[in-house]
Amino acid sequence: MDAAVYHGPGDVRIESVPDPEIEEPTDAIVRITHTAICGSDLWPYRGQSDREAGSRIGHEPMGIVEEVGDDVRHVRPGDRVLAPFSISCGECEFCRKGLHTSCVNGDGWSGANGGAQGERVRAPTADGTLVRVPERYADDEDTLEALLPLTDVMCTGHHAAVSAGVEAGDTAVVVGDGAVGLCGVLAASRLGAERVVAVGHHEDRLEIAEEFGATETVASRGEDAVEEVRELTYGGANHVLECVGAESSMSTAFDVARPGGTVGYVGVPAGVEEAEFLGTAFSKNVTLRGGVAPVRAYVDDLMADVLQGTLDPSPIFTKTVGLDGVPEGYEAMDEREAVKVLVKP
């Protein structure tokens, strides 16, 4: 089969690799019909994090089950499924408490099981990981594209909002205008925030933020952005979503948090070496909550909203490519020419 393979910074290629096979009775083989390029994939692409050359890449799979192991009970060949970026068993201590990303049997998609930017993947612990799409929506392309962000970015934005403690009537500030930040705006609005201030650097993305429910947007940088947010929120917000992971965005998040407030952080940390923002957190008694989003804990509720037509994160996909176009998709996201790239193998 063909799959995206990482060879070093700026170098992702489509290559022929072995097809995945059933290895354990709890496995399933899924033919990928929809996947995506994630902002976190850009860290190794830009040389800002380590990744083994020759490894397969991608972690947002949706597709059709082709084969299942003897012990798989919840899915069968022909089912349309999507899967969180983190593989989980659904049965261990951490899965039972909703922390599927700490599953003792956990795994990722980028290893020998296929890499989700490819034609097929092997899904270990299929019963715990794969999420069935109701049959009536299995061929509804608009619905499928609205569901695909639930594999990662929509649930991650939701995790930021939940971690920040957003509730009905609140004011929330979202730092970051990438796909996760935009989904954070959508999540805060869904949770009933009365005001949502979106902070970013790109007017076209902030327009999507407004479509997703942002009541105000801030396109300034650095201290100018902090001052503008503080003016808009009369001194800062109790609920701040940090959706980038850079040192500058973390600093901004803590600077705009009101004393006693909470920062929900979900941006994959990259280049965060001098944690000066911790001094701000300490002096203002600001709580830091969040981390890797336990997608499997959120996906069912969010899917219900997508299927009833009250949630649609698909506008984050501003470019669509086939599998051969994945290298082009990386370039587009790296150059900020696309918010998020949809891939249809």
Score class of each variant (00 low, 15 high):
Asn238Val: 03
Arg13Thr: 10
Arg132Trp: 07
Arg132His: 14
Gly63Lys: 01
Arg73Trp: 04
Glu211Lys: 12
Val299Ile: 14
Glu145Arg: 11
Ala219Asn: 02
Gly184Pro: 12
Val162Met: 10
Glu67Pro: 04
Ser55Phe: 13
Ala179Pro: 01
His201Thr: 15
Gly106His: 13
Pro259Val: 03
Gly264Asp: 13
Val240Ser: 06
Ala304Pro: 14
Glu91Tyr: 06
Gln117Lys: 11
Gly114Thr: 05
Asp301Met: 07
Val104His: 11
His100Phe: 09
Gly176Trp: 00
Ala198Pro: 14
Val65Thr: 05
Phe212Ile: 08
Val286Ile: 15
Tyr234Ser: 11
Val266Lys: 04
Ala225Phe: 04
Asp204Ile: 09
Arg336Tyr: 15
Thr262Phe: 12
Ala146Ile: 09
Gln117Cys: 13
Ser189Lys: 15
Lys284Leu: 04
Val326Gln: 03
Gly108His: 13
Trp109Ala: 06
Thr33Leu: 00
Ala168Leu: 12
Ser314Cys: 05
Asp2Val: 07
Gly114Glu: 09
Thr101Leu: 08
Val81Asn: 03
Pro124Thr: 07
Met333Gly: 05
Ser251Pro: 00
Gly279Cys: 00
Arg96Val: 11
Ala146Arg: 08
Cys183Ser: 07
Val197Asn: 00
His34Val: 08
Glu91Gln: 07
Val292His: 05
Glu21Arg: 15
Val339Ser: 02
Arg46His: 13
Tyr234Gly: 15
Lys344Asp: 02
Ala225Pro: 04
Ser49Ala: 10
Ser163Leu: 01
Glu203Gln: 15
Cys183Ile: 00
His159Thr: 12
Glu67Thr: 07
Glu210Asp: 07
Asp224Trp: 05
Gly90His: 08
Gly169Arg: 10
Gly69Gln: 01
Gly47Ser: 10
Leu191Pro: 08
Leu182Lys: 02
Leu302Glu: 02
Val339Arg: 12
Ala209Gly: 04
Pro315Ser: 04
Ala126Asp: 05
Leu191Ile: 02
Leu186Thr: 14
Met303Lys: 11
Val104Trp: 00
Ala36Phe: 02
Cys103Lys: 02
Glu141Tyr: 08
Phe277Ile: 08
Gly309Ser: 02
Val218Gln: 14
Asp170Leu: 14
Val244Ala: 12
Thr129Trp: 15
Gln308Phe: 07
Arg80Ser: 10
Ser55Gly: 13
Val295His: 08
Gly128Phe: 12
Asp79Arg: 02
Ala209Arg: 08
Ile37Leu: 13
Gly267Tyr: 06
Val30Lys: 00
Ser40Leu: 04
Val321Arg: 00
Gly261Trp: 05
Ile29Phe: 15
Ser16Leu: 13
Ala4Gln: 11
Thr125Gly: 09
Cys155Pro: 13
Ala126Asn: 01
Glu274Asn: 13
His202Phe: 15
Ser189Val: 07
His202Asp: 08
Ala304Lys: 12
Arg195Asn: 12
Val68Trp: 08
Val65Ile: 04
Glu337Ala: 14
His159Ala: 12
Arg190Lys: 05
Asn105Gly: 15
Val256Gly: 10
Gly157Lys: 09
Phe317Ser: 06
Thr171Asn: 04
Pro327His: 02
Phe277Arg: 11
Tyr137Arg: 09
Ser16Lys: 15
Gly165Phe: 01
Lys340Tyr: 06
Gly108Phe: 13
His202Pro: 01
Val240Leu: 04
Glu231Ala: 12
